[in-house]
Nucleic acid binder design. Sequence first.
DNA 1: AAAGATATAGACCACATGGTCTACAAAATA
DNA 2: TATTTTGTAGACCATGTGGTCTATATCTTT
Lengths: 234, 234
Amino acid sequence: MRREFKKKSKVLLIDDNYEHLVGIRELLNLEGTFDVVGIATNVSVGLNLIKKYQPDIVLLDMNMPDKDGLQGIIEISKLDLGTKVLALSGYDDADLIFRAMKIGAKGYVLKTMASAQLIYAIEEVLNGKIYLPLALSSRFFEYFQQSFREENAKQETEEENLLSYLTQREEEVLELLTQGITYKGVASKLFISETTVKTHVNNIFQKLQVNDRTQAVLYAINNGFLSKKIKLSA
Amino acid sequence: MRREFKKKSKVLLIDDNYEHLVGIRELLNLEGTFDVVGIATNVSVGLNLIKKYQPDIVLLDMNMPDKDGLQGIIEISKLDLGTKVLALSGYDDADLIFRAMKIGAKGYVLKTMASAQLIYAIEEVLNGKIYLPLALSSRFFEYFQQSFREENAKQETEEENLLSYLTQREEEVLELLTQGITYKGVASKLFISETTVKTHVNNIFQKLQVNDRTQAVLYAINNGFLSKKIKLSA
DNA sequence: AAAGATATAGACCACATGGTCTACAAAATA
DNA sequence: TATTTTGTAGACCATGTGGTCTATATCTTT
């Protein structure tokens, strides 16, 4: 794509392994389309270099001693310079990949991967895309689905325990309670008397085995009472 | 991998477009390693066929009129037969991809993709992997990161608005309130008089601009009062 | 030293909330 | 048809909750 006419992209490297650091710099220099504007063996120094040189992309090692890589991503994004972060790691740890992507890494590449793949990843990220190699995205999704499975399993068991005993009307009342509405308010919203509301509320307490509205609301929230509706959209 | 000695994998197709349905069946039959045990043009019929033939994998169209694809995935997994679901769709809608993967689809393939890619996706899923083409995983991650960015932005602004005005002691009191503890209980936990608790609570109400404990608790929960601690781990 | 913020706490009052008991009509179920 | 469940509602009472005002001791900040 006529890259010869384009300005070289500024790259910054952060890795506590100096050998590796120099190796990548050589690789990128040989490639010719990148300008390695700085290298650092820890996050603190790296942050200063980023402020100074404003690179387009930072290759950030995830497995470093003191300030770890995740914290690094957060601090880089806090600088608010639009710097893209490509995470580098020696391990395909699902949790680490998940958390890195969650806090905004534009990609995640293993150090063991072929250099061509690294170059490709950098280019994709520079073009505004998010790049996660198939092997890693696969890991990511296993972890991702696992976390939801657990969440659902938990909710389903507890849901069947207590919330499912509520009648429709009681659910309506509880829903209004979870909005912080007073008995009088509930009564007028449902066109019933305040006494009736109290009766329902008392029955709800019995069924949920709680003593007051606050506990009932907390129970409802913690056991997916509301999330039924929001669940799929978020 | 010596597939000629292996039993053919049982595949079931669900798509409201009959032409497409037959097309895929032909494709898979030609391939020779698959056994298309059934086809259906809607989810209800599909579910019955799944119960009867117990396929290894179901190719499920996401864009169907009545019961939509997402609901289909949920119901298939409820059968608890270990059936894998590969989602098919005409559009690379980020929200749909996200939701499908969230509820447990093992993959998502566009109808416009080359048939070789479909075959590959099926094989990967049959081998227990999750397969999302690069183009779609890219879409997924944009959406994924976007949702967290919004969540963080929302929390940070509102947090600074009201919750940050609370003093330390007030935060302690509020935290106990979010556990559904009564004033008397809070008093004894903090070794102060009930009156003092009331004073704190009243100040909290003022600062959070709410009228009662339930609303205060709801405000606290919705504005990341508790999530500060759990944030990065989940 | 003075001013402000914070944590403490009492008094008084109005009203909301929760507990218990009874009662009745409609609907669902046995 | 008889029984149970559900939704409705009244009465009565105890206690929890919230509003307002005042007051004091610390601790910070100016």
